[in-house]
Computed example of a mutant assay.
Amino acid sequence: MLSFITDLVLHLDTHLATLAANHAVLVYLVIFCVIFVETGVVVAPFLPGDSLLFIAGTLAAQQILDAAILVPILLVAAIAGDTLNYAVGSVMRRRTIDTKRLRILKPEHLARTTLFFERHGSKTIVLARFVPIVRTLAPFVAALGRMEYGTFLKYNIIGAFIWVFSLVGAGYMLGNLPLVSENLNAVVLGIVLLSLLPTLIGKFGRTAGPARKER
């Protein structure tokens, strides 16, 4: 499973280009499903959201994908995914389900997302778009925390537009540059590492904090 995910992330451009060449319509459906599932299903935080948006932008720059079709599809997927996630959290809150008993949710992931909310408030829905795992759990935790739907929807739409346009736009602008197109795997890996950086810094901070207190 891990090797499959690694291959998918590092060679996403090849897989999408091949799919687009053989099944022009199907590739848009696949892109929609990946973004929708990653943002809408709390058990799928491992999907390559950031790198997929960037790669999709590079393929649009090379006219393999149509940007006029791609961007609306991504926006709908991102907004609908978060909305579904919020709805699931709302149902669980109303039924007073103890999330600690849900084996599909890792306690450390929930704790990390909750801490993110404590630091950033409602803006978490926007900021979390750029943080793997937190991106997937933020709408769910927002519903559990009784964030009003109107507030959530506003930040959901704003976050989707910023996320999609920034990463697809970056891929579109840089996609035809030889330095990027010839080293796309390295660029994708860099995006993955950058997206994980806030999580690594937070984990290091939590580990270093108790160590400093013991001195």
Results as ranks from 00 to 15, higher is better:
Met1His: 13
Ser3Phe: 11
Phe4Arg: 03
Thr6Gly: 00
Leu8Gln: 07
Val9Phe: 10
Val9Gln: 11
Val9Glu: 06
Leu10Asp: 07
Asp13Ala: 06
Leu16Ile: 13
Leu16Asp: 04
Thr18Arg: 00
Ala20Lys: 08
Ala21Asp: 14
Asn22Glu: 15
Ala24Asp: 14
Leu26Lys: 07
Tyr28Ser: 09
Leu29Tyr: 14
Ile31Glu: 12
Phe36Arg: 06
Phe36Glu: 06
Thr39Ile: 02
Gly40Leu: 11
Gly40Tyr: 09
Gly40Ser: 13
Gly49Pro: 11
Leu52Phe: 06
Leu52Cys: 08
Leu53Gln: 02
Phe54Cys: 07
Ile55Asp: 02
Ala56Asn: 04
Ala61Glu: 08
Ala67Tyr: 12
Ala67Arg: 05
Pro72Asn: 04
Leu75Thr: 03
Leu75Gln: 03
Ala78Ser: 14
Ile79Gln: 09
Asn85Thr: 03
Tyr86Glu: 13
Met92Ser: 01
Met92Phe: 14
Thr99Asn: 06
Leu102Trp: 05
Phe116Asp: 03
Ser122His: 12
Ser122Ala: 14
Ser122Thr: 15
Lys123Gly: 00
Lys123Pro: 04
Val126Tyr: 01
Val126Ser: 07
Phe130Gly: 11
Val131Asn: 09
Pro139Asp: 10
Ala142Asp: 10
Leu144Glu: 09
Leu153Ala: 14
Tyr155Ser: 11
Ile157Asp: 02
Ile157Ala: 14
Phe161His: 01
Phe165Trp: 08
Ser166Pro: 09
Leu167Asn: 02
Gly171Ser: 06
Tyr172Asn: 10
Tyr172Phe: 15
Pro178Cys: 12
Glu182His: 15
Leu184Phe: 02
Asn185Trp: 00
Gly190Asn: 11
Leu193Gly: 03
Leu194Tyr: 01
Leu194Lys: 02
Leu194Arg: 03
Ser195Pro: 02
Thr199Lys: 03
Ala211Ser: 00
Arg212Asp: 12
